[in-house]
Amino acid sequence: MNVQQKATLQKLGPFLALLVLAAGLAITSPDFLTLGNLLNVFRQVSINALIAFGMTLVILLGGIDLSVGSILALSSVLTALMISHGIDPVAATGLGVLAGAGMGMVNGLVISKGKVAPFIATLGTMTILRGLALVFSEGRPITGLDSDFFAMLGGGYVAGLIPVPVVIMVVMFGVFWFVLKRTVFGRHVYAVGGNEEAAGLSGIKTGQIKVWVYTLSGAMAATAGMILTSRLNSAQPTAGTGYELDAIAAVVLGGTSLTGGRGWIFGTLVGALLIGILNNGLNLLGVSSFYQQVIKGVVILLAVLLDRAGKK
């Protein structure tokens, strides 16, 4: 096996792990490999995957975004408030995503202009935005979102079969894949993450790249928020708590390096699916939710350790 084959194999490692896990579940649980269950898994995965797509760009830059869960909650609360005040649901949804983008942009500006470490900056906004979500909702879920459009976001089907969230996830996967692979912006993200100083000295506006990446991450978190709010038929100010960790786990499981500059969006999709299928499978097998946590943590550590070993 030459070096290149080895690198390819390593890159596909998470994908192979996914196949093994799926095969194992197909054998042990007769309910796993049914169309209904699989579509259900994909729908559950979509929210984490959407957040993780944005997180992938952030981590490629060598950054981190802890505020995604709070952005999800605040943008959901804002959209729900707009709808319950009679604003057109389509417009309210669009404005909600824009609001999320704006919150991400604030992260980006604090990090690039204020030169604050991403961990600290987004820890701050995580707390602020969560607080604001509680303030605007007065701490209560916002209900009464009677809108066919809005209900369709989380609960609808395309062609009577494929859940709308899954379609959104697949489309966004395609968009992110294309952006990272083929556009100047995408390649500049890799360059800044790989060596910020060299990128800056080559004329890349590193600050702008950062602002856009965090803006995108915010927009993706808000998009996930719309889907979640639609599914629950209410906006919860405490929604999305801990989602940042699931997203980071998906990105890392997919082989993207936390030091930046190395990784791909396909890996993140696989990582999100791994986590989702693991959850689903453990449920089907009747494993207690306490043990589920333990197993998930072990899988994440194992994956990263194997990745390390493979690189040596």
């Binding site: 083929r182 556009t183 100047v184 912006f185 390649r187 500049h188 890799y190 360059a191 790989g194 060596n195 100083e197 060299a198 990128a199 000295l201 080559s202 004329g203 890349i204 500059g261 190395r262």
Partner: peptide, 28 residues
């Protein structure tokens, strides 16, 4: 430290300063 992004290919490093030159609407 300042000249190259070591983890990127020869192709990408050699076009780092003028990537836009090979792109239309931001697509390379």
């Amino acid at each position: 430290g300042q000249g190259l992004v070591l983890g990127m290919s020869v192709r990408e490093n050699a076009t780092l300063a003028n990537l836009g030159h090979y792109a239309r609407w931001g697509v390379i």
